[in-house]
Amino acid sequence: MISPAITSTRPRAAWTAALPVIAAGALIAYGLTSSGYIATVLGFAAIYGVFCTGLNFFMGYTGQASFGQNAFAALGGYGSAILTDRLGLEPVLAILASMSIAGIVALVVGYPTLRLRGHYLAMATFALGLITYEITIEWTSLTHGYMGYSGIPPLGLFGYELANEKQQLVALVVIALFGVWISNRLRNSRFGRALRAIAGSEAAAAALGINVARYKLAAFVIAALYASVAGSLFAHFIGFISPEVFGTAMVVLSFTMLYLGGIGTTWGPLVGALIASLIPEVLRSTLPGGLKEGQDIVYCAILILILIFVPKGLSSLGSLWQARRSAVREG
């Protein structure tokens, strides 16, 4: 079968395409009508949604593993902070510049690293995150070390700034939807099908003429670009970043979101990010001790439970049910 299309040519049923947009619209409306705090929580969810959508390219579609995507989020965040603060660059330009830096770094680092497999790949990517963490702490003249970087300007374009959380929330949700749209278009394209073939079997994919190493690298770079954007958006949204923001806890949190929403699905990462962001708000009154610690414990526990009992993510529960139903119908 020859498929010249770069992006997906498959027409979608109109109502399923409209559904997420309606859901997003409802969310924005909820965020706009309630307190600024809720808007901040939803903004976080959108940012993590971007990050997880990128991670999904590499882990979900391609079936690889990277435990160090936080490195690229840190690059994006610090890139944005330094470029806007030191050079007075427009936030949007700073985001694009950080993206290109992250992309180049991912290309250079990924080329040798992605030849590794199994626990070697896991540790090598984990080390990427740790090295970046160390550098952001040690290179104090550039990053302000442990103290973190504050006073980062909010999102804006040509001198016009998005003044409050609610305006920013709209921008973040639009960006997240755009990210998911790209992911959706690429998923069924020639490129996306190649990635999924690699996830199925590298040997079989290679036998079909797919350049496995190059496609893996492309997925890794895309994931890094998404991570960089997420890091930048975080910096502009909150106005403050520190090494701890992009630490190991971020890795586990993003995996929790990915598995909650369904790994390898288009909308899963965004949905998972939303659910995971709302969990601490629901549990706020019952969490023991310090909120931050209790929150991390809950995320870790959820992740471990999912990994044990529903390793394909919660969304697989639905397809399990569907498969059973269709089996009943046929039998």
Partner: peptide, 24 residues
């Protein structure tokens, strides 16, 4: 029969969980 990556991820989550419990 979980995959290698899933087990690595679970142990990583375990590490963070134990660290947080230690803080508390």
């Amino acid at each position: 029969g979980a995959t290698l990556f899933a087990i690595i991820l679970a142990t990583l989550a375990t590490q963070i969980m134990i660290e947080r419990i230690t803080i508390l």
